[in-house]
Amino acid sequence: MDVFMKGLSKAKEGVVAAAEKTKQGVAEAAGKTKEGVLYVGSKTKEGVVHGVATVAEKTKEQVTNVGGAVVTGVTAVAQKTVEGAGSIAAATGFVKKDQLGKNEEGAPQEGILEDMPVDPDNEAYEMPSEEGYQDYEPEA
Rank of each mutant, 00 (worst) to 15 (best):
E114C: 14
G132P: 04
E126Q: 03
A78P: 02
V15F: 02
V26M: 15
K32I: 10
E139K: 09
G7H: 04
V82N: 03
G25A: 15
V82F: 12
Q62W: 06
A53M: 13
A85P: 03
Y39A: 02
H50K: 11
M127E: 15
K96M: 14
Y39M: 06
S129G: 08
E126G: 11
Q24N: 09
Q79V: 07
G68P: 05
G47F: 14
E123P: 09
K58V: 10
T44E: 00
N122F: 03
E105C: 03
K32Y: 12
E130D: 07
V48Q: 00
V40Q: 00
G67L: 12
K97M: 07
T54A: 12
M1E: 00
A69H: 10
E126D: 12
G73S: 14
F94Y: 06
F4V: 01
K80D: 02
D135S: 04
K96A: 11
V52S: 02
E137M: 05
G84F: 14
M116Y: 09
A89E: 03
V48S: 01
F4W: 04
E57Y: 05
T75N: 06
A19L: 15
E83Q: 10
Q24S: 07
E139R: 09
G106L: 04
G68T: 12
A107Q: 05
G101H: 13
V16L: 10
F4G: 00
G47D: 07
V48R: 01
G73I: 07
A19R: 02
N65V: 11
V66P: 01
A76V: 10
E114W: 12
T54Y: 13
N103M: 10
E131G: 04
E20G: 02
M127R: 05
V55P: 01
T33R: 01
T64G: 06
G36C: 10
E137L: 07
G47H: 13
S9W: 15
E104P: 08
T44H: 01
Y136T: 05
K21E: 00
A11M: 15
D121G: 12
Q24R: 13
N122V: 08
I88K: 03
K97S: 09
T59F: 15
T81F: 13
E57C: 04
G67I: 11
P108G: 03
V15S: 00
D121A: 10
V55R: 01
A69W: 11
G132L: 10
V16Y: 15
K102V: 13
E130N: 12
D98T: 15
E104N: 12
V71E: 02
T92M: 05
G47I: 08
E61A: 06
T22H: 02
V15G: 00
A78I: 13
G106K: 08
A69P: 02
K45F: 14
T75R: 05
V16W: 13
P138A: 10
D2R: 01
L8F: 01
A85N: 02
D115P: 03
A69R: 09
T59K: 01
E126F: 03
N122M: 09
I88M: 08
G93K: 05
K21T: 06
E123N: 08
A85W: 14
V118S: 10
P108K: 15
E35F: 14
E110Y: 07
K60L: 10
K97D: 15
V71H: 05
M5A: 02
T33A: 05
D119L: 10
Q62I: 08
K21Q: 08
A78F: 14
V40R: 01
T54W: 13
E126M: 06
A27M: 15
E123V: 10
A29T: 06
N65H: 04
V70E: 01
V118G: 09
Y133G: 12
V63G: 02
S9K: 12
E130Y: 07
V3M: 06
E131C: 10
M1D: 00
A107G: 12
Y125P: 08
G106H: 07
E131N: 09
F4E: 00
Y136W: 12
A91N: 06
G25R: 14
A29K: 04
L113F: 09
A29P: 00
K12A: 11
V77M: 13
K58D: 01
A56D: 00
A11V: 15
Q99W: 15
D119H: 07
A78N: 01
T64Q: 09
K80C: 08
T22M: 11
V15N: 00
Y136I: 09
V26T: 01
S9Y: 13
K102W: 15
D135H: 08
V15K: 00
E130G: 13
K10A: 08
Q62G: 04
S87P: 04
E114V: 13
A29C: 09
M5Y: 01
G51H: 11
T72S: 11
K34Q: 01
Y39F: 06
E137N: 04
E110H: 03
Y39K: 07
I88Y: 14
V52K: 01
A90C: 15
A107M: 07
E105Q: 11
V40S: 00
A69M: 04
E104T: 08
T54N: 11
G14T: 15
G31Q: 13
N65M: 08
I88D: 04
E131F: 10
A124Q: 04
V118K: 10
V52G: 01
L38R: 10
